[in-house]
């Protein structure tokens, strides 16, 4: 009781040597404590692991790894065929790969965004984060970075498989490396755009289902709408309409970027003219950063009510 309240910590483990051995009592922590940078890095790394279900329950790993396997499988087959037949070039350019597996990519981004954003909001864990040194905006930035990294890894895994296969098949290493690096650049922009779309939906919709439906709807359905508009404008010799429509969706922006920044091309109505090409790059960066900005704003408002 208070009257007999003596200095409780002076004992320490040594001072309590006379006590029971298995109860070593409370041990204060005197070691180092990292600053905001170290904390943010730790949050980011945990987030990257969580995107793939690591550090979470066993069944959380099923979906991300099943999608990843499906995403990499065609690349493995391509490499097998290329080395077996002995082709001199890959049948599919690196950056075209993501466009052909949009459904897998969209599902991955939609399903894993809520893991990093909705989960903390829905279960109230966010108040534990806000009660620790990191600011709400630093939290959101680390989370967004983790999601973008996860998506980037998902996009790049099959491309890496194809690249290694191409080198193994003795294709021109310099040419392949240049193409591979160009693919890396456009994949980074794609991952940033998808992380912003998925992250925003997940930070607004607390229920995972709403966030998933919102993101999948935007990425897959929205893609279909824009692609149809581009197809019609191509038929009608009104390519400009298609080029402008392409600015309104991450996947058609990506197709345009591939056209502008790499040797490959799979856009229906690729941007023509320097101004339109620059516009595609600028809008892509704006979509990624603008979405991130809105996310940061949302979390700043959460923190100061």
């Amino acid at each position: 009781m208070p009257s007999s309240h003596t200095e409780p910590r002076t004992g320490g483990p040594a001072g309590r040597a006379g006590g029971v051995i298995h109860d070593i009592g409370y041990r204060p922590y005197a070691g180092p404590r990292g600053g905001h940078g170290a904390i943010a890095r730790s949050l980011y790394l945990t987030g990257v692991r969580n995107v793939f279900g690591l550090g979470r329950s066993g069944k959380s790993k099923i979906l991300p790894f099943a999608l990843l396997a499906l995403n990499v499988l065609p690349a493995v087959i391509i490499v097998g065929v290329v080395t077996f037949i002995g082709l001199s070039s890959l049948p599919l350019a690196y950056p075209e790969y993501a466009a052909t597996t949009t459904i897998l990519l969209g599902t991955f981004a939609a399903a894993q965004g809520p893991i990093l954003f909705s989960r903390d909001l829905r279960h109230g864990t966010i108040s534990l984060y806000l009660a620790r040194p990191l600011s709400a905006t630093a939290y959101a930035l680390a989370r967004w970075g983790a999601l973008a990294t996860g998506i980037f890894a998902f996009v790049m895994a099959p491309i890496l498989v194809m690249y290694l296969g191409a080198l193994l098949a003795q294709m021109d290493a310099g040419e392949q490396t240049t193409d591979f690096l160009a693919a890396t650049l456009v994949s980074l922009l794609l991952a940033g755009m998808l992380a912003s779309v998925s992250g925003l939906f997940s930070a607004i919709a607390l229920r995972r289902g709403f966030a998933v439906v919102g993101t999948i709807g935007t990425i897959l359905f929205g893609y279909g709408v824009v692609a149809v508009i581009q197809g019609i404008s191509l038929e009608q010799d009104q390519e400009r309409v298609g080029e402008i429509a392409g600015l309104f969706h991450p996947m058609t922006l990506y197709a345009g970027l591939v056209n502008v920044l790499t040797d490959a091309d799979n856009a229906i109505t690729p941007p023509t003219g320097a101004a339109m090409e620059v516009l595609y790059v600028v809008v892509s960066v704006l979509l990624a950063l603008g979405g991130l900005g809105l996310l940061l704003l949302r979390y700043r408002r959460l923190a100061t009510r």
């Binding site: 404590r33 550090g55 279960h123 864990t125 620790r132």
Partner: peptide, 21 residues
């Protein structure tokens, strides 16, 4: 305030790291 799909052990480790440990 607890995420249901994480173990207490992993969670407390993570939260200690969120304070810089």
């Amino acid at each position: 305030c607890l995420p249901p799909d994480v173990s207490a052990s992993d969670f407390v480790v993570h939260m200690a790291q969120m304070s810089g440990l």
